[in-house]
């Protein structure tokens, strides 16, 4: 079997680190605890990531890229805007279910510890792959007349805040039904809130 490349090793480290960060939080997770979980020496871990902050930054880039690629595929598909909303909600909840650590990291580490990311990820730089696709989704929705023209962030906040909130409540075990059963009504609510009047 071929030896994994450095890039592949990095991704497998990130996957494990993601679990730890999203469970323990940013400050509780240390480079030694990550190294231990992977079964490598701390020294070797530093060969891949020069600091915990750099690892945390690469993780957010990695997640934003995953989300961005999914939304790009939806944007480029032959769907109406309403169908695209359904597809984005479905994709987001599916990732939250299959790989909960991804969304957890986004909500509980990235958004909750802005001071960590301030230097290396100012503004939207590290989540640009994701935000850019959302911009394209909204721009095209308005251009074709399905969505109401308004400030981008008002619409973005409504859409992503809603999804993030639902995943958060779900994580707290408050919901009475499985998350995916809410998909349709949530997509409908988003569509009705944003559509042209």
């Amino acid at each position: 079997m071929a030896r994994p490349t450095k890039e592949e090793r990095k991704i497998s480290i990130m996957t494990k680190a993601l679990e730890l960060f999203s469970k323990e939080g940013f400050y509780q997770t240390t480079m030694p605890s990550i190294a231990e979980k992977i079964g490598m020496s701390v020294g070797n871990l530093y060969n891949y990531f020069t600091s915990k902050e750099m690892l945390a930054k690469d993780l957010i880039l990695y997640i934003a890229n995953i989300l961005g690629e999914h939304i790009r595929a939806i944007n480029e598909s032959d769907r109406t805007t309403q169908e695209k909303i359904e597809a984005i909600v479905h994709m987001y909840f599916k990732i939250a279910k299959d790989r909960p650590e991804t969304i957890e990291y986004f909500l509980r580490v990235y958004l909750s510890n802005r001071e960590v990311f301030q230097n290396c990820c100012s503004g939207m730089i590290c989540v640009s792959a994701f935000v850019t696709e959302m911009m394209i989704f909204f721009e095209e929705g308005v251009r074709c007349g399905e969505l109401r023209d308004q400030d981008f962030f008002s619409a973005f906040g409504l859409f992503m805040g809603y999804l993030g909130g639902m995943v958060f409540i779900n994580g707290e075990n408050i919901l009475s039904k499985p998350l995916e059963e809410y998909e349709h009504t949530i997509a409908e609510n988003i569509y009705y809130a944003l559509k042209t009047r």
Binding site: G141, L147, Q150, F152
Partner: peptide, 8 residues
């Protein structure tokens, strides 16, 4: 001219 704040 913009669509959701994005130049047309």
């Amino acid at each position: 001219k913009t669509y959701m704040s994005i130049p047309a």
